[in-house]
Design a binder for these strands. Sequence first.
DNA 1: TTAAAATCTACAAAAACGATAGGATAAACT
DNA 2: AGTTTATCCTATCGTTTTTGTAGATTTTAA
Lengths: 136, 136
Amino acid sequence: MLSKKTKYGLKALTYLASIDTKEPVQISEIAKHENISQKFLESILLTLRRNGFLGSKKGKGGGYYLIKKPEEIQMTAVMRVLEGPIAMVPCVSLNFYEKCDDCPDENTCAVNRLMLQVRDGALKVYRNNTLADLIS
Amino acid sequence: MLSKKTKYGLKALTYLASIDTKEPVQISEIAKHENISQKFLESILLTLRRNGFLGSKKGKGGGYYLIKKPEEIQMTAVMRVLEGPIAMVPCVSLNFYEKCDDCPDENTCAVNRLMLQVRDGALKVYRNNTLADLIS
DNA sequence: TTAAAATCTACAAAAACGATAGGATAAACT
DNA sequence: AGTTTATCCTATCGTTTTTGTAGATTTTAA
């Protein structure tokens, strides 16, 4: 199940992308427009900023804005930051690999084999979509 | 993230499939061979039986056995029983559809659009794999 | 009748999730 | 300078989900 954090983060990003201006947009505006708890959205936008997707400006007239162009923001990167690993098990993860402690051999593991295919399917989709593709 | 329930369930199914005999296999044997907590595995096998994947026999010499042939057990069915919906959001789920309460319009929702593709990718994999494919 | 096995119910610890509270900090405007 | 506006930061908290555990019950074979 997709976490609300990811869902809200994606919605916030697409909202920012759908606005032409590079002017900062306030959290309250995004929260209201997308029906998101403002305080919760705060922390999400913060992690998006810390991970290089958003810039921010404090004080009056402040807010958040996209740093890159929507066409340059890949879903793989967004999903990894918001949702974590794309793979459903760590033993098939590219960026978060971990060996299963209960599994003696990955090469003969049925779960590994199946989840490898699922991961490839998801990767294909995420690599094929940028933020720009989600708003058109 | 794949739940341990699903992971263990898949391992149990593949273990049963890898054994030629139609004789019942004890929970303890499966648990030991796959490094799974026996009590936890009990409840998993129970749900697999209640959903038509396994048969069981009580008493001495009892245990669990596959009801169908491995080639006839599709991963879509297994995943839906163990893990739940294949879709990451209910609004793109085929078998567990639910409308998002916060989203005014699915047709213009970025999350919907993206997760629809992810669901299709996962479905493609699950439909293309039976239990037999996981053990070969 | 005894032992072995699944079945069932209930509960419990731990982790993750979805927020909320309240102050700190910075910028703009008066 | 001071006030307002907005992000930034840390901590906390209630609920749900996950991951089991405990113990009694039922069924079957020998």
